[in-house]
Design a protein around this nucleic acid. Structure first.
Lengths: 285, 285
DNA sequence: TTAGATATGTAGTAAAATTACATAAATAAT
DNA sequence: ATTATTTATGTAATTTTACTACATATCTAA
């Protein structure tokens, strides 16, 4: 749905622009916020070009004209990439670091939303539905993600289990067969043990699904790779948010599985939900 | 930071508007997308009012005028709350349910960002730093969240552990002392075992931090409650996204702890990061 | 019923954006 | 190198859009 981020489009086409349009581009990129609030005249002045040049610049990016351009620009500012200067620094207090952390997570989610391959998602859903067994593997932070996945897919009455011990993982991978799906979660995709395990599983004819960084050794070994490229946390204070992205992708997959199962399957989900009711205090209402 | 969502503001003030402004409001709310693309004249016509009425309507919402209003409207469409009609339905395919799931997660994150109590976050950070021991407790889906928290806080050289077995939890709670922090994660805050465990811990003088629904039994029992109210998933297909919100709040807390520790602490974090390096294949670059 | 206040619309004005056209710069061909 | 042709940019006029000041209508309360 959502068209690609306008700011990125401008950055990408920066080398292809002619002189005046380039000037406009740089002014817009340097401070997009104020650009959305300027008139075409002020922007033209700031860029040192004529008003029609600004107008032509706008039309390059599939917009109707300047006002429409500002609108789209505002939207891309709001939806994504409040990237610049949103890093936590040592002077921050609660009121500033809290929204920064949350916004950065939101940004990352927006990025995958716009970049994830729907075809691959479909393929993975296929694999999960047809699997004889599903193993979710992860180490370290991804271990918790694997756990969550098990919890989620268990509800679908699928034969799932979850392992975060790499000896166990290795043993299971080496006894895997065709029809078994090894769903391997890894932020970097370069942890040696994990990569070896993927290799073993592949060699036994099992399906390996990698939820990991694109072009990583794990991704290259996978039958289907779901690429997640979250900008590296160069900043010491920024938490690793690929976990979050991984979890949300698992949500997407779970939804895909549910939908594929069709409405006949809903009563089963309802049953599981209800099984937990007696363990709860009633809500007041 | 981010001002409150314009669409919500309009909806909220709907009863306080006078006749013509109400007409405009309804037209805008019925189809905000096209509203952002209309001129003041077309919008006035569609609402059956005069242009200045539209203009006055805009100024009510702290905007400079119609163009500014459209801008802000576009931003709130992009940034948040695409609330209405973003539910997954059985006819959806990958290309539609994928963004829906991700957007709904984003919405929920935006909501907590704008509603979380910074004072409470601060308090919790205080408690975590001064704790003699920290226990992360969770059951079911929250078990995975607790696991993630352990992994994260372990890196701070804090005495943490994580438990997702309620018998173990109960034993630990009953041997807790002053200075021990029980960080209890629960989506509903009404699971009987969890609530009892919180009660036991409190009675022993331990600190209980509840990451849970506001006004739930668990929240009421907690020394400090971090409220997370994610709209209930009435929709069968929508995954529970409170987990995600919980994780991100834990990220925020972790950041708070790091910052409070000061820059002297950074080498320690670096050391942990480096300890993992030998387990990885080198990146190609 | 009427005075005051509030709400809405009309018409004129100002601002903003776009178009058509002219000039300038760059590229290619001789 | 010079000219022809294309491409890029700017000028000025036009059109669209939004805003302001004011007038009229509607509502509220005495």
């Amino acid at each position: 749905m959502q068209s690609q981020n306008l700011l990125n489009m401008i950055t990408d086409s920066l080398p292809n622009l002619n002189k005046s349009e380039g000037k406009v581009a740089r002014v817009v990129l340097s401070d997009p916020e104020t650009a959305t609030q300027s008139s075409i005249a002020t922007l033209a002045k700031k860029a040192g070009v004529s008003e029609p040049s600004v107008n032509r610049f706008c039309k390059r990016f599939n917009t109707m004209g300047f006002p429409d351009f500002k609108l789209k620009l505002a939207m891309s500012l709001a939806s994504g990439i409040r990237s610049v200067n949103r890093n936590v620094d040592p002077e921050d207090d609660v009121t500033s670091y809290t929204p920064k952390i949350i916004d950065s997570t939101i940004n990352n989610l927006a990025l995958v939303r716009d970049s994830i391959s729907h075809a691959r998602v479909n393929q993975v859903v296929d694999n999960l539905i047809q699997a004889k067994r599903i193993y979710f593997f992860g180490l370290d932070a991804s271990g918790a993600v694997a756990r969550d996945a098990e919890n989620k897919f268990f509800r679908f009455n699928l034969p799932v289990s979850c392992h975060d011990d790499f000896l166990m993982q290795r043993m299971l991978a080496s006894t895997g067969k065709t029809g078994d799906v090894f769903f391997i979660i890894s932020h970097t995709g370069r942890t040696k043990e994990i990569v070896e395990i993927a290799e073993i599983a592949r060699n036994n004819g099992s399906t390996v699904i990698g939820l990991t960084a694109s072009n990583s050794p794990l991704a290259n070994l996978s039958s289907v790779a779901l690429d997640v490229d979250v900008p590296e946390n160069t900043d010491e204070y920024m938490p690793m948010s690929s976990r979050i992205v991984h979890l949300v992708i698992l949500d997407v997959l779970a939804t895909g599985v549910t939908l594929r199962r069709g409405t006949d399957f809903l009563p089963h989900l309802e049953k599981i939900k209800n099984s937990l009711k007696p363990t709860r205090y009633n809500s007041k209402k």
